[in-house]
């Protein structure tokens, strides 16, 4: 019979201190929505359960005075991401992903930190975080360090975090872009794991040329990807149907380069282009406004 001990630190130092001593033997409990499922499916029970829900500092959302950096505590739930104006204004794609994230019940529990730390290729918050060039601020006994989001996952369900690490918050390059979106494909319209997801944000210059663009692909590759080639293709240009189709082709090509040709590629290769076109096409009108 498994025994577990629950630790409920009141502050970050206590938590970090505990992890320093017992990290490898500890499940970190944030929202719990993934942890419970893992434990039920037979994942090894560790002796300690570290409940982070009492650590208020993990739940703060702040914007820097110059509005350049948005900080989102790892313990912020998807529901708060959905409702906080600060996030809606300064990280609109992240806000949008919160509408279709799992279910209402799960959004009320699940945290952004948990979604990232779980390292699922299908984590819906990841592409929006990537386009904001987010970094995770990770604490352990040696102090804090920042890990760029793209380096958080070593592979599918393999986090780069050490057992002693606790994700404190994410620092995003805040932006109020002229154009932003998050889209996903699931097997149904709610309670669906993303088969594919993508996030974009962009700005244009006075001529209607793309002056800034960030694009990220989720769920298609073992780790999240920012698609620099796609971004470069669009930068400095006025989006046209031709350009979008070109971008779609390039995106598919880059995806296949990463994943290779597994059976699932038969769907993913055209679908990634289709979703890209659907998401990016409105830019044509936007750039001509």
């Amino acid at each position: 019979m498994t025994t577990m001990t629950c630790i409920r630190p009141e502050n970050l130092d206590e938590a970090v201190d505990f992890l320093h001593h017992h990290g490898p033997d500890t499940h970190i409990l944030a929202g719990g929505t993934d942890l419970m499922v893992d434990l039920r499916s037979g994942k090894h029970h560790r002796p300690y359960l570290l409940d982070t829900s009492r650590i208020d500092s993990l739940k703060t959302v702040q914007i820097s005075d110059d509005l350049s950096r948005l900080s989102i505590g790892s313990g912020v739930t998807l529901t708060r991401i959905n409702t906080l104006p600060l996030i809606k204004d300064h990280a609109p794609a992240l806000h949008k992903c919160s509408f279709t994230f799992a279910s209402r019940q799960i959004r009320n529990m699940a945290t952004i930190g948990g979604n990232v730390a779980h390292a699922s290729p299908c984590g819906d918050t990841i592409p929006p975080l990537v386009i904001h060039e987010a970094e995770a601020v990770v604490a352990n006994k040696d102090g804090n360090r920042n890990i760029p989001l793209l380096e958080m996952n070593k592979g599918a369900y393999q986090s780069a975090l050490h057992p002693e690490d606790l994700v404190v918050k994410f620092i995003l390059q805040a932006r109020q872009p002229g154009f932003s979106d998050f889209q996903k494909i699931g097997r149904r319209k709610a309670l669906a794991t993303s088969r594919m997801s993508m996030a974009v944000m962009a700005d244009k210059d006075s001529q209607g040329c793309i002056s800034f663009i960030r694009f990220s692909l989720g769920a298609c590759t073992p780790t999240p990807q920012r698609m620099h080639d796609v971004e470069s293709l669009f930068t400095g240009k006025i989006p046209s149907v031709k350009l979008i189709n070109q971008g779609a082709g390039l995106l598919a090509e880059k995806m296949v380069e990463i994943t290779g040709r597994r059976p699932s590629i038969t769907y993913k290769e055209p679908a990634v282009q289709g979703l890209f076109k659907r998401m990016i096409y409105p830019m044509v009108t936007w750039c001509r406004q």
């Binding site: 409990l29 719990g32 279910s103 009320n108 529990m109």
Partner: peptide, 17 residues
């Protein structure tokens, strides 16, 4: 829980505290 709908199966009992 605190006015929000949650899945009791995904929540640890300690989180009710």
């Amino acid at each position: 829980v605190n006015g929000q709908a949650v899945n009791a199966c995904l929540m640890f009992g300690v989180q009710l505290d």
